[in-house]
Amino acid sequence: MTLSYDISRRAFGAMLLGTTAACAPRIDDAIAEPAVPVQQDWVAGYGPIFDAGYNLPGIPSRYLEGVNRRMTGLYQGEAPPNSLDVDPYAKFLYHVKDDGTATRYPVGVGRAGRSIRGRATMQFMRAWPGWTPTQNMLRTEPEVYGDFRAGIPGGLRSPLGARALYLFRGGRDTYYRIHGTNDLPSIGNSGSAGCIRLFNQDIIHLYDQITAPMPVLIRTPEESLRVDPENYNRGVELPPTVISAEELLGPEADALARPPDLDALSPGMI
C-alpha cells in the first residue's frame, strides 16, 4: 500500500516559518524537499493522521528515539494537577492530571534568550489557527514581515500547525504559543524563536485532552535540575529553518489556500 499526502514542499515550509509575534524567525532561504517515507511501520501514536481535510504524514522513527516520544507515567514534578508543566531545559511538556500521573510530550523550545519563563495561563486554544505579524514586527523589520502584514489563514500554510494554545499573563497576551510544527528535527532541541513546538500528532493529542483556561508553569533552570537532572540541557541549539515569502505566497502556492474543514470525515469512514 502507498500512502498519499496533501503536504507539499511549500506546505511543509510554511509550517516552519515561525509563529506569532515573539515566535517568528527571520524569513530567508527556502527549504529543501522533505523526505517523507511512503510506507513503514509507524511508532504507535505517530502514524499518518487525517485531520480537517488534510492528510498529515507520520513521524519517521528516527525522530522518536529514546525519550523523544509521548509517554504517560507517574508525575514527579512540582506543578499542580490539571496544569501544563514545560521544562525548556529537558525539552518536555507535561500534562499533569488529577490522579498523580502525567503525559509527557517532547518539545522544541526557543534558542538562548528567546523563551518565556515563570507562570502563565493557557487562555484559549484553536484548531488550525492563522498567524499575523504584530505591528511592532512590521515597524521594526518591514523587509522581513511586510509581505505577511495581512496574515496567513489557518491551514497548511499557517506556521502554527494543526493546533495552538495561547499563553497569557496578567490577562495580557504574551504572544508565546504552544503549537504544532513540521520542523521535525527541532523537537528535543532549541530551534524556535521562543514558542514551544510539538509534533503535530502530539499537539492534536494534547488538545483533545485539555480545556481552557489552564495554568502553565515554565520551569527555571533550578527547577529543571531539581526535578529532572538526567535530561537537563538535552539537545542542541539549531539555526532557524524558514521559507521565503515568495515561496509561500507566490502564484504556485494557491493550492495551499484550501481552508481546514473541521467537520471533514476520513475517507475510510465514508
Rank of each mutant, 00 (worst) to 15 (best):
L265T: 14
P267S: 10
L249T: 14
D98T: 11
A253L: 05
T103G: 07
L93M: 14
P88V: 01
S83C: 08
I178W: 00
A79F: 05
G45D: 04
L160G: 08
K91D: 02
M137H: 14
Y166F: 15
Q201E: 08
G58M: 02
R10A: 06
T19M: 01
S115H: 14
G73T: 13
R177P: 03
I59V: 14
P260L: 05
D254R: 14
L16N: 12
P153K: 04
P251Q: 02
E143T: 12
R157W: 05
N55P: 01
S83R: 03
G171C: 03
L74N: 15
Q135I: 13
Y94E: 01
R219H: 08
A32T: 13
V107L: 02
L156Y: 08
L262T: 08
R139D: 15
A150D: 15
V38C: 03
A30I: 04
Q201L: 06
I7H: 06
T174R: 05
R157T: 11
T220L: 09
D29G: 13
G155W: 11
Q209S: 05
D99Y: 07
G155T: 08
V144E: 15
G188F: 10
R9M: 07
P240I: 06
M137E: 15
G113A: 11
R258C: 09
G130M: 10
G170V: 03
T103E: 04
R104S: 13
D263Y: 09
R197P: 07
S266N: 15
P106L: 00
N136P: 02
P57Y: 08
R119M: 10
D173I: 03
R117I: 04
V109M: 13
S190Q: 10
I218M: 04
I204E: 01
G268N: 09
E143M: 10
P34W: 01
E141S: 10
G45F: 07
P251H: 03
A21H: 10
G161L: 02
M71G: 05
I187Y: 00
G118N: 08
L64A: 02
L217I: 12
T121F: 03
T211V: 14
E247T: 15
L184I: 07
R119D: 12
A120R: 07
G151M: 06
R70F: 02
S8P: 02
A127C: 04
P60W: 01
Y89K: 09
I59K: 00
N55I: 08
I7E: 09
P229L: 03
A245W: 02
A164W: 05
G110Q: 11
F148H: 07
